[in-house]
Design a binder for these strands. Structure first.
Lengths: 155, 155
DNA sequence: TTCTAATTGCAACTGCCTTGCATTTGCACT
DNA sequence: AGTGCAAATGCAAGGCAGTTGCAATTAGAA
């Protein structure tokens, strides 16, 4: 029974953090872990309506806040409208490519910050503890449809 | 008269974009250009009250929207609360170091994206048009006071 | 100076998110 | 299994950043 295994996995996760196991919480963890891209609270709300009986938006927000403070979930803000985004914390270091054409989000492991870190340390005595890198552009499917390039400045 | 020179400079900027020259607009451009870090609409609103007679928040937002669409201003979102930030577009490529201790913002010209661009192009056929890189850590003044390092993960 | 479209102030409103409170529920301990 | 209590939830109201409709004002071209 895959479902049972899955749920006992989330149950352990919650127990480890010292918070109670509820159907809403496992449902939210499940949706987020299965999702390959960050979700807004409302997208989660809609998915949850299908999965569990019903849930209130305040519960969604409170649960996501709890998960974020426990580092089970990573919170960020969407670039265009500033809306909050939540994704399962896989504890791996990765960045996203955002396609400007179709808004697809592609995960990559490449990270060029390592070398920069040494340079900054030496040049201006700054100790890096974390960073955020977002890359915009056109994916393979969209690059052929983009308008005649204006000025590929700022790259 | 430095002030006159300054204002005629903004006047030209606005004329070039085909939008009218008003005291609010020059005031906003002036504040943003003189500021070394991005500002929220409300911070601007407060600065503006000192400078010009009075201004409405809706005017602030509308002006900033106009400037953003004309690329005179760059809009982003604050990391912690998602609030909108606006900064003068100096049309130079730079990134910021944000000190986690004192919240100082340090500008750097180092940018490690150039090399990454070739890699991504070759590996997954993705054309970069832009990117955003934020780096967090401790500046020289704060590094001595940071708490005994827990786990310098995610760097 | 005159005319017109752009800009502004005001007030009401939207949407995301939060909070207070009464009710329910998970779960540790018998 | 039953009990007790803190944690979690639903509901409704509220807070706050940002938006919008509209009438009054103003920049700037003719």
């Amino acid at each position: 029974m895959i479902f049972l295994e899955q749920h006992s996995k989330y149950r352990e996760l919650l127990k480890r953090e010292g918070i109670k196991n509820t159907k809403h919480r496992t449902a939210i963890l499940e949706i987020l872990e299965e999702s390959d891209s960050p979700k807004t609270a409302e997208q989660l709300f809609i998915s949850l309506k299908d999965k569990t009986a019903s849930i209130d938006m305040s519960t969604v927000y409170r649960t996501l806040d709890t998960f974020t403070s426990k580092n089970l979930v990573v919170k960020s803000n969407r670039v265009d409208d500033g809306k909050a985004l939540y994704e399962f914390n896989h504890h791996e270091h990765k960045h996203h490519l955002l396609c400007v054409g179709c808004h697809k989000l592609i995960s990559i492991e490449d990270c060029p910050i390592g070398e920069l870190q040494q340079i900054l340390k030496r040049k201006i005595d700054f100790d890096i503890t974390g960073h955020k890198l977002e890359i915009y552009g056109y994916c393979r499917d969209c690059k052929n449809f983009k308008e005649p390039s204006t000025d590929s400045e700022d790259v």
